[in-house]
Computed example of a mutant assay.
Amino acid sequence: MTSSPHTDSNLQTTSSDPATPAKPTHFRLFNVFKCALPLAFLVLIVAWLWVAYGNEQMFDDLFEPPLVEAHGIVLINGTPLSHAEVTTVPVRKSLTGAFGMTDEKGRFSLRTLSRTKSLLGAYAGLHKVGVVAYQPTQQAFGSPTARTPMKFRNPNQSSLTITVSRNPEQNQEIRIELRGELAPVSATPESTRVSEVLGEFDLNKNGKLDAHEIPQDGPGAHLAKADANGDGSVDRIELLNSMRQQPQSTTSPNNMMQVGAGFIVGHIFNAHDHNEDGVLDQEEIEKMPAETREHARITEADLNNDGVVEREELTAAVQDD
């Protein structure tokens, strides 16, 4: 039996029909591939950032990190360093550094200047650290005499670093360890006066004033009040504490304001006087965070209009705030 051309045409049309559903399938696969490719590319970028910078550093670089409480201890040659100023400079330059002061046991808590307030904590991330312990006979402004080695004083040049975690629980025992020679503490006016009192009244030279050695009248009668523990004698520590509690010109409200201002000024100079010439020039001022310039009234501090801000000028500006 022969087929007509018309019948062949119908067969060809019929045989091509089953191939038509494949077209939508290819189209759907193409759409899936087109959506998945950018997503895979984004995942690769995130993975590269994670490997290159680390998980916490990556987020610090992309977003401003939070202020987190940070506490620790400063040691020099394994011994706690008391009454030392700690200043930090975040590696991320747009952030404000932190500061703190160690207590008798070498422990400190970091604070950060924010406009007109001092906030507890430091920005999360890596910080360069400077540590300076001053002689107690010096004020915290002007040109104080430092006891700590030079290489640790300026955070921008120091090899010391700390990492402030986003988790406050991990910032409770930050250790800052120094190695080197610590200059001995110079004699203070109080300790000199204690030696003079003992030299005059300590007749048996046992290093304290026994009951029969304490004057009952005259200029030395007030020494009896120094017996803090009531054992009838006054030792060197009791004498020293008694003299420190007596009103002195150095503890007047005005002078305490100077010391507080000097602490802030010292922090600013340690963090921003990059060439260590003792003044803040315009380039150094422009690189400061805006909130530091506003808090310290930097723009108003150049009293003699010579284009730079000296320590004394900045101290006066902070005191007037």
Rank of each mutant, 00 (worst) to 15 (best):
W48Q: 13
D235N: 14
L37D: 03
A296H: 01
P253D: 08
L75R: 05
S233A: 15
D273N: 10
F27Q: 11
A316I: 07
M58W: 08
F269Q: 04
V309A: 05
K128S: 07
M256A: 06
A183Q: 14
E276H: 07
N167F: 09
F108W: 10
L11P: 02
S249F: 12
L160N: 01
D277F: 06
A221C: 02
N304G: 04
L160H: 04
I214H: 10
I298K: 00
L29Q: 10
L223Q: 07
A211R: 15
G266R: 12
V132G: 00
V46L: 15
L119R: 06
G199A: 14
R147I: 06
R293N: 08
G199P: 11
A261K: 04
H295A: 13
N55A: 11
A187C: 00
E200W: 10
I162Y: 08
K128R: 14
P253N: 06
T13D: 09
L44G: 14
T145S: 14
G220S: 09
G78K: 05
P18T: 05
Q248A: 14
P189F: 02
D306V: 06
T299Q: 12
Q172T: 14
F27V: 00
A317L: 08
D277G: 03
P247S: 04
T137D: 06
Q248S: 15
L120C: 09
Q246V: 04
L42F: 13
Q135K: 13
V132T: 14
P24S: 11
G97H: 01
T79Y: 03
H222D: 13
A271D: 08
V197G: 00
L314K: 07
R311C: 01
P168S: 09
L119T: 03
P149E: 08
M1C: 06
D273M: 02
G218N: 09
V309R: 03
A290W: 03
G278L: 00
H6I: 07
K34N: 11
Q172C: 03
R244T: 01
E294M: 10
A22L: 13
S109T: 14
V308Y: 06
